[in-house]
């Protein structure tokens, strides 16, 4: 009997070594988060990604699975982000007539807004006494993860810190867009989508696709352009 219990207790350790465990865990949390979100009446201030992430983090902590090991297994999921980013080119193409009709606002807004997204964060953190390493990690906070990693390394920041800032930014950008859309008010799905992608990268883009296909296409555009623009400009600005 005690042998049975021992073998049972050893299970999480054995499972943790296999990617299929990380996949099962992530998928479960994903569906549980969506289910809970629907049960809570789809609250704007608590997106499903946060619910899923909190549950996933709790399970990882309770089972005392090593986080780094979980990440290795979950690579089977995260590696799909590459082709998924390419996939954003398809709604972009399908909505190209909308984008053509709005090219002037886009061309004017993008450089200003993408620069300010970095400047606000860096100036606030600098005024509150953050170190240069932290500033370099915060600067690309609105840029999609694969590009942001490259920027942070170039600026001499810390990649884990940047990733944390990136994720928090994505979630709060989603909340603020929903909030400010009501306050200002902004009803144009194209504007909301563009703001979601520009400020909230992949997390904002995922939210935009929940609004509509058009919002999603504008978010993909905002995310892509912000990524390219910031990657080219930020290293130049930071040298000054």
């Amino acid at each position: 009997m005690t042998e049975l219990v021992e073998r049972f207790v050893a299970l999480p350790d054995i499972f943790a070594a296999s990617p299929i465990f990380a996949i099962g865990l992530t998928l479960s949390a994903f569906f549980a988060g969506n289910w809970l979100f629907a049960r809570m009446g789809r609250p704007v201030w608590m997106p499903p990604v946060v619910l899923s992430a909190v549950m996933l983090a709790a399970v990882i902590a309770v089972l005392s699975v090593d986080y780094v090991r979980y990440q290795e297994g979950a690579l089977w999921i995260t590696v799909l982000l590459g082709p998924a980013t390419v996939a954003l080119g398809i709604p972009l193409y399908q909505q190209i007539h909308h984008i053509r009709a709005m090219w002037i606002p886009i061309v004017v807004t993008l450089p200003l807004a993408a620069t300010m997204a970095a400047v606000y964060a860096v100036v606030i953190a600098w005024a509150m006494g953050a170190t240069p390493e932290v500033l370099a990690s915060l600067a690309p906070k609105s840029v999609t993860a694969p590009i942001a990693i490259g920027i942070t390394e170039q600026l001499g920041g810390s990649v884990p810190l940047m990733m944390g800032g990136l994720l928090i930014t994505g979630v709060v950008a989603t909340l603020f867009v929903d909030l400010l859309a009501k306050w200002l008010p902004v009803e144009d799905e194209r504007i909301l989508g563009f703001a979601l992608g520009l400020n909230g990268h992949a997390i904002g883009t995922a939210r935009a696709f929940e609004i509509s296909h058009t919002a999603g296409a504008f978010a993909s555009l905002g995310m892509g352009l912000t990524g390219v623009f910031t990657a080219l400009i930020l290293p130049l600005v930071f040298r000054l």
Partner: peptide
């Protein structure tokens, strides 16, 4: 640096979302 980082992320993102929406709205 918790305070500086959270202020930069929360306030900074609020301001940049506001900037984007206002700019885009007036340009449209």
């Amino acid at each position: 640096q918790w305070l500086a980082v959270s202020a930069a992320l929360l306030l900074g993102t609020f301001l940049s979302v506001l900037t984007t929406l206002l700019l885009m709205k007036s340009m449209v």
